[in-house]
Simulated scan of single mutants.
Amino acid sequence: MRVYTEAEGQRRLVGRADIPDDVGAIFELNLFGVSSTISEHFVVATITHLGPAPHDIRVERVILLGMGQRPEILPGWQPLAS
């Protein structure tokens, strides 16, 4: 799943992570073991991409990082190539 950050009303692609497609509206990541009480919650949002033709619309589910969230802890994190 692609990972975006939002700043000043603009969403910016920062990389991708191995998040299952069937996850709900919140992806919960346990930080210290399987039954940890310490976890991080990531919002699963939708982003609409408009193509050149009026009927060329694509919607994808993405992880939208909140302020201060670090994508490096996501499973299978891959930043954009520089």
Rank of each mutant, 00 (worst) to 15 (best):
D18K: 07
V23P: 07
R16W: 03
D18Y: 00
L29I: 01
G9C: 08
I38L: 11
H41Y: 08
P75G: 09
G24Y: 01
S36Y: 05
A53S: 14
Q69C: 13
L29V: 02
P71S: 06
I73L: 09
I57C: 12
P52Y: 11
P54A: 02
I73G: 02
R16F: 01
G9P: 09
P75A: 08
M67T: 13
E60S: 10
I19N: 01
A7L: 11
I38C: 07
L74I: 02
S35L: 07
I73C: 09
V62K: 07
I63F: 05
I47K: 08
V59W: 00
F42M: 07
V59I: 12
S36Q: 04
L31Y: 03
E28I: 14
V3W: 03
V43L: 15
T37A: 12
P79I: 01
L65V: 00
H41S: 14
V59E: 11
H49M: 01
A45F: 10
R58Q: 07
E40N: 06
L74R: 00
V62E: 12
L31H: 02
E60K: 07
E60P: 03
S82W: 06
Q78M: 10
V59G: 00
E6Y: 12
V43W: 10
E40S: 12
V43P: 01
L80E: 07
P71V: 00
P54K: 02
N30W: 05
V59S: 05
R70P: 00
M1Q: 05
L13R: 11
F42I: 06
A7Y: 10
Q78N: 05
L50H: 14
H55Q: 14
